[in-house]
Design a protein around this nucleic acid. Structure first.
Length: 430
RNA sequence: GCCGAGGUCGCAUAGUCUGGUAUUGCGCAGGAUUGCUAAUCCUGUUCCUUUGGAAGCGUGGGUUCAAAUCCCACUCUCGGCGCCA
């Protein structure tokens, strides 16, 4: 959510920033917001005026009552005002709701250096790291490899849970755990606090952390309860401090979240869906930071550096792209995507690093002050980046580390986590 | 799940029975005073179209000219009991 006061103060500047997205509908929406705000304040003034009239009369009634004078006439007089007020208050309530929805749908102001583009095709490559592996044979897709090794069962998962679910078995399940522990150890050493959050959240925190459209397309709702399965641990970590005031002396606060993630993935059929790339449920180690506004740019780079170090240690070729205006989404002011090289020679997203500035914090009402007893200074900045999403990283490992006989070499850094095993071989059928 | 107590502005606290300007202290900001500091005093500390208004007492309804206060529902926290991997 943007600061309405700032919009009122600098409507032209805000409009200019939004215009960089080259989205006509958005600009119309923004102009509509400005118009609505003007109307809204008129209604507000009217309501307050009527309330004033009523309050004055109320005081008079009280005075007459105390003086044991007749107050019946005053009451019948004020009733007209009250009726009128009720009408205007309904208008105000409606206008207030409309304003809120409009404001919630205005995206974050984008950082100056974000490149312009219409979609993910226009993202700008910043760097490419690692060598493309050379195979003396035609490399296979991870799903085929995993099926041949008896490490995955999608048919039985489909039978019991439907499309998009899998049983990971044997060394594949172990590889998943190993990747998580590898990332946890790395971040823990850097001082990130390990957090295992709730896997379900109420609607209120959810409205704070994400775009409203996500409710239909992404989130699973728990029937009979006001609860949603989390789509990423970013969400429970961001809402951890909801409605709280942090002490700047404690900032930045760095979290390393561990969780399964649940996504409905509505409308993403046909987009490279075979196998582990798009699952309804996967595991992710996530980095999350609360910080002072002046530190967020620098920490955004730190988060980026962290995940790149992990990928370098795993020796998987990757590239980093600067996400363009059209692919940025609503919450982030600036975003880097990290993409790993897959067997078909294409780079695919494995992690996403967002600087949300104060947009999320304003929605969640997370403020800070310079010290105990000092006045509230403003909203904190929040940032999040994937450390390792196991499923997608597993794809990259399987496809980049495959051998001619169909076995998979385990990356050196993961071998200690895999009981010293160096290779994944065909498992017994079960 | 049951019983009990509670939720008041940044923090603490009074008011709730018996409806009538939300009290007081602390913190913070600005000003006055003062060799400096401290103390003291004044104003402010949410929103608005600011010589003035309005709102705000966990949330949402209701009753009323008027609700922190009365009624209903919900929610969270704490304590006790029950169930439980």
């Amino acid at each position: 959510m943007l600061d309405l006061k700032n919009i009122r103060k600098n409507p032209k500047e805000v409009r200019k920033n939004l215009a960089r997205r080259k989205d006509k509908v958005l600009l119309e929406r923004f102009d509509n917001l400005l118009k609505k705000d003007e109307q809204h304040r008129k209604i507000l003034w009217k309501v307050e005026h009527l309330r004033h009239k009523r309050n004055e009369k109320s005081l008079l009634i009280n005075k007459l009552k105390k003086e044991k004078k007749n107050f019946k006439k005053a009451i019948s007089e004020v009733q007209k005002t009250v009726k009128n007020l009720e009408k205007e208050e309904l208008k105000l309530e409606k206008s207030d709701k409309e304003m809120n929805i409009l404001l919630m749908r205005i995206p974050n102001l984008i950082d100056e250096c974000v490149p312009y583009g219409e979609g993910d095709k226009d993202n700008v490559e910043i760097r490419k790291v690692g060598q493309k592996p050379k195979f003396s044979f035609k490399p296979k897709n991870h799903f085929e490899l995993l099926e041949n090794l008896n490490l995955i069962d999608s048919e039985r998962a489909n039978k019991v849970s439907g499309h998009g679910f899998f049983y990971l078995k044997g060394d594949l399940a172990l590889l998943d755990f190993s990747l998580q522990k590898f990332a946890i150890d790395f971040l823990s050493e850097k001082g990130y606090i390990i957090v295992e959050p709730p896997l379900m959240l109420r609607k209120k925190p959810y409205e704070g952390v994400t775009d409203l459209d996500d409710f239909e397309n992404v989130m699973y709702k728990i029937e009979d309860d006001d609860l949603y399965l989390i789509a990423t641990s970013e969400h429970p970590m961001a809402s951890y401090y909801m409605d709280e005031i942090l002490n700047a002396k404690e900032l930045p606060i760095k979290f390393c979240g561990i969780s399964s993630c649940f996504r409905r993935e509505v409308g993403s059929h046909g987009k490279y869906t075979k196998g582990l790339f798009r699952m309804h449920q996967f595991n992710k180690i996530e980095q999350f930071i609360f910080c002072k506004p002046e530190d967020s740019l620098k920490l955004h780079e730190e988060l980026q550096n962290n995940c790149e170090q992990l990928y370098k240690k795993l020796r998987i070729p990757y590239r980093v792209v600067d996400v363009c205006t059209g692919d940025l989404g609503i919450i982030a002011a600036k975003k880097y995507d990290t993409e790993m090289l897959m067997a078909d020679g294409k780079y695919r997203e494995v992690g996403s690093n967002s600087n949300c500035t104060d947009y999320q914090a304003r929605r969640l009402n997370i403020r800070y002050r310079e010290g105990e007893g000092k006045p509230i200074k403003g909203f904190v900045h929040t940032l999040n980046n994937t450390a390792i999403a196991t499923s997608r990283t597993i794809i990259a490992i399987i496809e980049n580390y495959q051998n001619k006989d169909g076995s998979i070499t385990i990356p050196k850094v993961l071998q200690p986590y895999m009981n010293g095993k160096k290779k994944i071989l065909k498992q017994k059928v079960i």
